[in-house]
Design a protein around this nucleic acid. Sequence first.
DNA 1: TTATGAATATGATAATTATCATATTTCTTT
DNA 2: AAAGAAATATGATAATTATCATATTCATAA
Lengths: 225, 225
Amino acid sequence: MGKCEQCIIKQFNSLKTLSEEELIRISSCKTSRIIKKGDIIFEEGDTLKGIYCIREGICKLTKLSSNGKDQIIKLVVKGELIGQRSLVSDESVNLSAIALNDMEVCFIPKTEILADLQKNTAFTFDVLKEMAMDLKEADDIIVNMAQKSVRQRLAETLIYINDNFGTKPDGTLSVLLSREDFANIIGTATESTIRVLSQFKKEDLITTIGKQIKIIDLDGLSRVE
Amino acid sequence: MGKCEQCIIKQFNSLKTLSEEELIRISSCKTSRIIKKGDIIFEEGDTLKGIYCIREGICKLTKLSSNGKDQIIKLVVKGELIGQRSLVSDESVNLSAIALNDMEVCFIPKTEILADLQKNTAFTFDVLKEMAMDLKEADDIIVNMAQKSVRQRLAETLIYINDNFGTKPDGTLSVLLSREDFANIIGTATESTIRVLSQFKKEDLITTIGKQIKIIDLDGLSRVE
DNA sequence: TTATGAATATGATAATTATCATATTTCTTT
DNA sequence: AAAGAAATATGATAATTATCATATTCATAA
């Protein structure tokens, strides 16, 4: 199994602030896990015994609404940690994590992380910093949900995915989501999402190849009203 | 001026984890400020030189949407801190803070708080814990915004205010908001808010005395669909 | 390969919410 | 106490979005 202290992934998250020594200790008790597309890493209400560091793949963090629909709160990719919030609050997780493609994740037991949170101020502060960023992003999402149309939210979601996760060689978005997933991100009915995508096609803002989406006018998309 | 180490307010926020010594140091450089109803404590984009501890009164945290409407992200009352997020991220504030009634706040310079964040792990961890709670609440708001009707969101907002901030002796909600404020919390037009409040009145879920609102059927409100 | 189910697509219609107009009430100031 | 401004209230109508029905395409396994 790989060693944390040599893992490049840690550069992208708070684990980078840990000392060589601390990383070796974590490495010795971490476990690696392969997760298939569609599989659940953890589910809303679960009591997590640690956090996950994503080595490969992408997953969605969702929350079930009382009307029975899932809301996607965040897409999480290679390099990021998940499960920190519930670890810090010492509560059950408030979100489910579901793989969008095949993944490899490392599980780090709660006790190890808590030990570092108690001793290493730089680590705690970095986790705090990341959470402050998440909170800021959440504020932005709230405003978008509250104030923008489905059309605008879909346009912004496409831009977000393009800017943050990039495209494949053929120009299609590298994160492949179903129309239903898009609907669950922007908080609308699947049919509405499909309809707006069709509009965007007619307006030459995007093209589609099967379920793949290719942005052909990023500027136009950003000006959607 | 009051002394932090003797201030009861600190029990309700992360400052409670500071030592007597640390509190005395903070006390010596804090400044107290009286803020009138409607006044701005800080504005989106400002660079804060510290954080505020609310000794008295209530304020709203708002964010301006690109369509020109304000969204209220959170109501903050006596005992809570504001400005921590931007201090931690070392960024300009992403929200504006506006007094909903006359307030008294204490301003604590950034350097003092950062010093404690560097030395006192318990303090850092408590700030982290609070932020994890804020993040969880933000997730809930996202789901509500995305999945629930204006009617449901207004009902839940009334319940939230009742449960968290209580009522006056006459039974009306102790936090007095304009209809426009309500609209800016639930993300709808002011007229829609007024219309739904009228419906709630007809359904005997609430009564109104001027702009004051009194919940008369909490159970019914919680079952609104 | 074909059959079978799932995902995507589109039409028709209903429900929700926004917008604009206009009263009416309440608050503030003089 | 009266005037003017601001907030609340309600009607009429338009715009947005959801829902239900039904094709059509796509993917996957027998």
